[in-house]
Write a protein that binds this DNA or RNA. Sequence first.
DNA 1: TTAAATTTTTAGTTTTAACTAAAATAAATA
DNA 2: TATTTATTTTAGTTAAAACTAAAAATTTAA
Lengths: 217, 217
Amino acid sequence: MFSLSEENYIKAIFHLQKHPQSGVSTNALAEEMQTKASSVTDMIKKLSEKKLVIYKKYQGVYLSETGRETALKIIRKHRLWEVFLVEKLDFSWDEVHEVAEELEHIKSEKLILELDKFLNYPKRDPHGDPIPDAKGNFQVANKILLSDLSIGEKGTLVGVKDSSSEFLKYLDKNNIALGKSIEILDKEDFDGSMLLKIEDQTLRVSTMVTINIYIKV
Amino acid sequence: MFSLSEENYIKAIFHLQKHPQSGVSTNALAEEMQTKASSVTDMIKKLSEKKLVIYKKYQGVYLSETGRETALKIIRKHRLWEVFLVEKLDFSWDEVHEVAEELEHIKSEKLILELDKFLNYPKRDPHGDPIPDAKGNFQVANKILLSDLSIGEKGTLVGVKDSSSEFLKYLDKNNIALGKSIEILDKEDFDGSMLLKIEDQTLRVSTMVTINIYIKV
DNA sequence: TTAAATTTTTAGTTTTAACTAAAATAAATA
DNA sequence: TATTTATTTTAGTTAAAACTAAAAATTTAA
Ligand SMILES: [Mn+2]
Ligand SMILES: [Mn+2]
Ligand SMILES: [Mn+2]
Ligand SMILES: [Mn+2]
């Protein structure tokens, strides 16, 4: 149906869009895809001809309905594979993303239906992100960034914004994991760093950390 | 490491070679790869420069030691994925090959080691073919083609030569499966067709069938 | 509201892996 | 052995997806 490259662009546009109908700039896409703006323009034109994106010169792109459906299918596959790797193959959450980047392109309806069944229809991936069902539906959790909490507020860690291996390893090392309860004991105004109570331990973390952790209050 | 196309050529050469050091002809490879002879020549030159094959103009190609190791790794992955699909995801043996053709190219050492462990180190795939271990070792069963048996001889079905969906569905329909005992009740000299006793049932089959079934006597 | 800076697009190249058509070599046969 | 046929290679194109350099459009700032 679509090439590897096309699929990766669709996914990137989806992730950068965030708000429907809001245009993603050529430069932002180039940055995300680790490529040059001119290459992006070429690909955008192709995707536009295939009706996957809406594109007007110099105005940026956004996904068409077909494009959005395509993106959600790929994301569904990516996240299901991540669950599989962690739950069944003893991968840790910092090791799965790269492999899932490849697995998400395997083309087989049955494969993904059966995998979903095998995993018992998981709702979230190892990083707390929602997994769309076969129809593309998923519930967005009302999570907020840890950095937006004030002293005294409490919540549960439900997701990470940065899924890089480095960040996840840092979290592992400090015993920070999905599902743990977090309370803000102190917050520095000048640099946003926080003193946290995570279950039984207390820990001081930088903004780099607080802006990459999602909390459900 | 190697491109999708390179990997597929390596695998094709491995399958066509059968005897070490025996050259595979350009046309045979073109047939197997569903492409043109001139394209094959191009790719062979590239593989030769990469030291994966031994090639002399007009003399055909065969795998170098590195080439053979590469081929065995891909075949190992292919067959492990086939086992996974059948054992864990309820695929039938006629549905797995195509998907495995894609999955075999996923690049992750850990993935395949863990998959092997998860499947409990299977020795054969759903079609009876041996699965090389992490070092590339595998035992070749002393199987023979059903067509080589004579009236009165018995054996067990241990493999299929043709893994096409059509052939496997034919076998399913007639209750022919790996592990079943087979006895040759009669054999026609003029066309090679056979009257078989498979467990409790008797069945007449054509040469098309007998030359694609492996028996262990 | 011009001019400068930034962003985006166009034009032209490169690489990979295909292709067709034609030339070269090898194998088969008269 | 000479000729015909088949196989294989070479030469030249094409398409996808990247690139660089330069032109065009938009945005920001003087
Ligand atoms: Mn991921
Ligand atoms: Mn994830
Ligand atoms: Mn197979
Ligand atoms: Mn198989």
